[in-house]
Design a protein around this nucleic acid. Structure first.
Lengths: 153, 153
DNA sequence: GGTTGAGCTCGAGCGCGCTCTAACCCTTAG
DNA sequence: CTAAGGGTTAGAGCGCGCTCGAGCTCAACC
């Protein structure tokens, strides 16, 4: 059930249906303090390796509770942060910037302005990237058309 | 060969999102047969370093004519190929794939089908990337909205 | 209760794509 | 005629983001 919810959240994150519904994603992974997940479960759902999850923790991007025998036990907060982290990574945010961001988050509410700056900057980067990719896509499609239609490409 | 397609790719390069000098690119494609450009000129216009241009040549992505004293003298064909190469690189195509592609181009017209496959595959990659980035953008904008609009209760 | 397998830490290694250095060569301005 | 400044080569080095291995502990299943 919770596992399913996580799966759904991640499917939304990776492979969006027609409308992008950020609200829904947000709801799907909201607090749910009963359950916890093992490292390989989380890794599989986020499409990263357990090694990577340990690495992220090691470099201070998040802290993960342990079970009595010392194993990582990812709670809802950890998973939510990981969803954020992996999405930012996939969209090209460098790890150093993620470290800066989570440091601000952990520092408390007086850093909100700075976090906002960081997000605004990333938004601009994303828009720029999308524009560039669309241009590359147009160029690629044009070349494809030249190969398929034109007798002398 | 596919000079025309490369030229078209260059034409599509005319309106990059930020910074790239449109006039400069026009300079680069004007005077097709008469002129040649030095390495630092080309590097500046393509926004890469001369080191990178030598590197691309070294790994076989293109060949560049030399002037009588042995210096690189980029002609229109070389520049067109570099426009293509840099565009593909910026849109995430790995160098190994570029090597494969230019190898096919250099192998002659019987490799057209294979080149087309490669381009189709890249097109799909681009579409997927764009979709992902748009989702990340939506998520980022949502977070920004949460910070700016919602006065925290 | 022994074996299998997953997780743990620590630290080294790696693949990619440049990026830089060393040592030398040419062209051009003063 | 000299000196600056950019070009040439081969090859080493680097930053990023993992990725893997060694050697161990622990839990679970037959």
């Amino acid at each position: 059930m919770d596992d399913e919810a996580l799966t759904d959240a991640l499917r939304l994150a990776v492979d969006p249906p027609d409308g992008v519904n950020v609200e829904a994603l947000h709801d799907l992974i909201r607090d749910d303090q009963a359950t916890a997940w093992g490292i390989s479960t989380v890794a599989a759902h986020l499409q990263v390796s357990p090694h990577t999850l340990r690495y992220y923790e090691h470099i201070g991007l998040l802290t993960v509770p342990r079970d009595p025998s010392g194993r990582r036990s990812y709670d809802a907060a950890a998973v939510r942060r990981l969803v954020f982290l992996t999405r930012m990574r996939r969209s090209g945010m460098p790890i150093a910037e993620l470290q800066r961001y989570v440091h601000l988050v952990d520092a408390g509410p007086e850093t909100v302005a700075e976090r906002l700056d960081l997000l605004l900057e990333h938004r601009d980067t994303l828009r720029h990237q999308i524009a560039q990719l669309q241009l590359s896509l147009a160029a690629t499609e044009h070349k494809i058309a030249a190969y398929t239609e034109g007798p002398r490409p």
